[in-house]
Nucleic acid binder design. Structure first.
Lengths: 355, 355
DNA sequence: CTGAAAGCGCTTACAG
DNA sequence: CTGAAAGCGCTTACAG
């Protein structure tokens, strides 16, 4: 209990007043109070007045959980967002964009981090469903979301963000990962690099596989040989990314450029490059923008996703579905943008490598 | 509606099954199903078995909003966090820490950004209260929270984070803003600076005033004259902070050091220093750490708050109150930490200023 | 324009 | 160990 000072008015310490209490004080039926509280028309002005006075006097606040229980549509005006990690700037910006659109619709947001844990995803989906969230926005950690079929009622829209669904048909808003990665690597090739390392997250993650595919496609398109020694998967955080670099840089024929396929990986790689004083000699392009990328020296060239646009688009799909849109599931692809800042334009060292 | 494939089992397209449906299928009373679902002891094993079979067959999921409506304690197992801006790394980390503790208690989190808007704060407090959140965690945008007395029922704990309450008695978890600012400025004085600018947020914000007080105290303690020309308040974002610098640097007697009293302000100031190529000549210490502060050149010296510690402590207060702790409201002060990285150790230029 | 009765999906408070 | 009845705070579906 917080030790609040005694209340100046209204109920004090007693149970919260209910519709019934307001009705009794105003001398009308519960139904009339309900009409006034919900702004329904067709109530005599005098009764409206006396209900409003009673509401003020009692500090009455409607109980939305009770009203949603009885309402036919069962809406709770709450939507759940299940994202990768709310502390990561990508998820945080996405979350903020979702909040802004939800706020326009007077809808609140539940939020949860999945941390790449399929179990956590299932647990949270169930928790939000039990609380009757009106819709789910999901950046899945599972590789197959077939379980949603029996876990979530059909009336509850699900919109996937960042990662496309698998085993379940639903709207999705994703970045063009293959194309973005291709552009990043093509950019490096354009600056003369032929030894380009791939630094990626766990291959269980679809977007990680897509970015790897884009990397391979870019090499192939420009006739740059693919060398598995330059590929590192499974870099789950900045620390592991930094730790993976020494081995790469000590190869007989080390990479002259790095493609870091996720923001944490980019930061980890740069931390190592700076520690080894290689930041002006080894080129790097990252996938995902991050705050302050422009303030590092050199500035960090990235393929930027637009988490705000992704979030807004996802929220718009949610509210379209809630408004009754029953067209087939669609996937919205948000394009990426190459942001040139310096690190990606470091040229390959001149050498005998190219005939 | 998402266009899910036909369900393999359970209800399909029909309404969700209820306790009553399970009871009918299992051939027991609703009360028995309730007992099994809630893990209450004292049900014959055979009945447990047949209830569990019916639950699986129907894909029954209890409706938590209904159960919380009827329960005596009325708990919804949801807590609301009203923070400054979920996209700001400080709020995002704080939010994540809250989530982690809540998750340990099987409690979900509602989240909202206040954007320094008192109206938005009141609207969201009401929205969360209407949804019967079990507790509120609040980084207030209002200057007086007296309205909480009649807006939030006494049984609902409120814990303030980052900013202390005013006009309302409640637990709070805050950083030591005065002391942190004092240490930052003392550190700059220790490197010979006597012309130290203060770059602060709107003075309507208590923490902004506290940090300004710490700045003044440090000057006073070391006998450095206070010059109002070196003080800029009202810097609401990085852009305004950057835009405020030219005027300062063009003073007849410009500052040799900056104290940036918030992370966005620090970033804005650095953006200007880099653009003007002053980053190696003008010292800066920021309040609040931020990601990549160590990777800038020079590294950015900051007085770091610990948003994770603040969040954990706040969540712990919440769950202590929910568990029945009725001791007087307390304020937990989380100490700050000076993190030396280079920008704060740039010495004052030698000059005739000091006798 | 207004209200009495029933019911949303659960748990409580009993009685057996 | 089990269940029938009542009720949480609202809205629905009526009837007047």
């Amino acid at each position: 209990m917080t030790t609040a000072p005694p209340r100046a008015r209204g109920y004090r310490g007693a149970r919260r007043p209910t519709l019934k209490d307001v009705a009794a004080l105003a001398g009308v039926s519960m139904k009339t109070v309900s009409r006034v509280v919900n702004g329904e028309p067709g109530v005599a002005p005098a009764k409206v007045e006396s209900v409003e006075r009673a509401v003020r006097q009692l500090d009455y606040r409607p109980n939305l959980t009770a009203s949603s229980l009885r309402r036919l549509d069962g809406r709770t005006a709450a939507v759940a967002a299940l994202l990768e990690d709310l502390a990561n700037p990508f998820s945080a910006e996405l979350h903020r964009a979702l909040e802004d659109v939800a706020h326009e619709h007077d809808v609140l947001l539940f939020a949860g981090s999945l941390d790449e844990s399929p179990e956590r995803e299932k647990r949270l989906v169930r928790a939000f469903t039990s609380r009757r969230a009106d819709a789910l926005i999901l950046a899945p950690a599972t590789s197959d979301q077939g379980y949603l079929t029996y876990e979530v009622p059909e009336g509850t829209p699900i919109v996937f963000v960042d990662r496309a669904p698998s085993g379940y048909e639903a709207d999705a808003v994703v970045a063009d990962n293959v194309d973005g990665a291709r552009r990043a690597v093509t950019h490096l090739i354009g600056h003369g690099h032929r030894r380009i390392a791939f630094l990626g997250d766990r291959t269980a993650i679809q977007t990680a596989r897509d970015r790897f595919a884009g990397y391979q496609q870019a090499l192939h398109a420009r006739g740059v040989p693919f060398d598995p020694d330059l590929v590192v998967h499974g870099l789950e955080d900045a620390g592991r990314a930094a730790a993976a670099l020494p081995r790469l840089m000590e190869l007989r024929d080390p990479p002259s450029a790095l493609f870091a396929a996720q923001n944490e990986i980019t930061v980890g790689a740069i931390r190592h490059l700076q520690a080894a004083e290689l930041q002006d000699r080894v080129a790097i392009v990252g996938f995902d923008d991050f705050p302050l990328a422009d303030l590092l020296r050199p500035g960090v060239t990235v393929v930027a996703q637009d988490p705000t646009a992704i979030g807004r688009a996802a929220a718009e799909r949610v509210f379209a579905r809630l408004a009754g849109d029953s067209t087939p599931a669609r996937t919205v692809v948000i394009p990426t943008r190459l942001v040139v800042r310096g690190s990606g334009e470091i040229p390959a060292p001149a050498g005998p490598r190219r005939p």
